[in-house]
Simulated assay, not measured.
Amino acid sequence: MGFSSFVGALFVGLVIGVLGRLIRPGKQDIPIWLTIVVGILAAFLGTLVADAAGIGDTRGFDWIEFLIQLALSVVGVGIAAGAYGRRSLH
């Protein structure tokens, strides 16, 4: 993975993670680095799901793949907030 790919993955992860936090109701007490990690994982898994469903290779912006990634990010932010909140209480 080159430097530009790494920076691109961070940017996509940040965008997907932040959008997931904005959509998820309630307050999420997780740090920004965890938001980025959740976003990167959601983007990666969303791409795998879209490819497996045969909808991942389209021309231009792939809205269906993006919505899958976003849904996974919302779920991931919820899981991370729950796990991170329990960990920091003890």
Rank of each mutant, 00 (worst) to 15 (best):
G2Y: 02
F3V: 03
S4Q: 14
S5R: 06
S5G: 12
V7A: 05
V7R: 02
G8S: 07
L10K: 02
F11K: 01
F11P: 10
F11S: 10
V12H: 08
V12P: 05
V15H: 05
V15A: 11
V15C: 10
I16M: 03
G17M: 03
G17P: 09
G17W: 06
V18Y: 10
L19V: 11
L19N: 08
L19F: 11
L22C: 07
R24V: 15
R24H: 15
R24F: 15
P25V: 01
P25S: 07
P25E: 07
G26V: 11
G26K: 14
Q28K: 12
Q28W: 14
D29K: 10
I30S: 05
I30P: 05
I30N: 08
P31N: 13
P31E: 12
I32K: 13
W33I: 11
W33E: 10
I36F: 07
I36N: 09
V37K: 06
V37A: 13
G39Q: 00
I40K: 00
I40Q: 03
A42W: 07
A43Q: 01
F44S: 09
L45P: 00
L45G: 13
G46C: 05
G46I: 09
G46P: 12
G46H: 11
T47H: 11
T47G: 15
L48I: 09
L48Q: 05
A50Q: 07
D51I: 06
A52Y: 05
A52D: 01
A53E: 07
A53V: 08
A53I: 12
A53Q: 10
A53N: 10
G54W: 12
G54D: 12
G54Y: 10
I55D: 07
R59L: 13
R59H: 11
R59V: 15
G60D: 01
G60H: 02
G60E: 02
F61Y: 05
I64W: 00
I64T: 11
E65I: 07
L67T: 01
L67G: 01
L67W: 01
Q69Y: 03
Q69N: 02
Q69A: 04
Q69H: 03
L70Q: 03
L70T: 02
L72Y: 04
S73Y: 06
V75Q: 02
V77I: 12
V77E: 04
G78E: 03
G78M: 06
G78K: 00
I79P: 00
A80F: 05
A80W: 06
A80C: 01
A81N: 12
G82F: 10
G82H: 08
A83L: 12
A83V: 11
Y84P: 00
Y84H: 14
Y84D: 14
G85S: 09
L89W: 14
H90F: 15
